[in-house]
Amino acid sequence: MDELLTTDEMATFVARGFLEFPGVIPDELNAAATDELHSIMATWGSPARPFAPASGDPWSDIYPDPSAVGAVLRHPSVRRIVDSLVGPEAVFDHDFVHFKPAGDPGFQPLHADAVIDPNTAFDIQIFYFPHAVSPDGGGTGFVPGTHLRRVHETQVGRYRHLRGERRWSGPAGSILVFHHGLWHRGMENPGSADRLMYKIRLNPTRPQVRRWAADDLPDRTSAANDHIFATFDPTRIGMTLRHREDWMGEQDHRLELIARAELWRYLTGDAHFDLDWYHSRLERRAGLGAVVS
């Protein structure tokens, strides 16, 4: 396994707001973590809770040995996510153990966590599933590509079904990582197995610029004038960044491209990167005359 995320994985994260890593945590660690998560859940909010980190604690210090949850968080498959997206000097925001009993028909409204967040720098949320989740097993629901839209918490709870919404299912030891803005929800669990899931949010403390395995960036990046309505190279990163979700209309997608290009500029330090000339057109013309409002 590579020690860091690849440029293509980073572009997928920017375009879709998540990455998925099925079955990367080994079974013996999943078993130990399951026991510890039940202990945490049983003692939540009390002094008896094992390994209770505080917001702002260094990522590297939380859940110290012999914590099984800590062993999961420091597993190479998780470490490469953290190191690449928020850096090893990231700090703890909060975490929670989510338990969904078999047969529970309750579901959450669709929501984005925390509050409206206008920053380009972003947090990540890691979801860990210590056991297999079947398609009807109450896996987390999420809507790819919603992460850059500026909404407030359950403001989006009115949306019961959006085309392209995912409902997580997969093998034991699976990891999902979300951009903090991704719309998601806990789903009903009509299946026959209880569902346990652990979620942790991390904040970066340094610019998230080229923290991944970015050596291939000069070869993978698209030209600033890579333009789907003019000339473009379908083998370059621009095609990954243009990914269009099934719920997106044309006007949605164009605003997404503008937002994704801004995020890619931040991540790469390339102030001239663009997708389909949207930024370039405006920036090149801006000096020609005053803005009319």
């Binding site: 929670f96 529970d104 028909p105 309750g106 806990g186």
Partner: peptide
């Protein structure tokens, strides 16, 4: 409606 009351995922 039996919707749960636990914190949001």
């Amino acid at each position: 409606h039996p919707q749960g009351v636990h914190p949001h995922e």
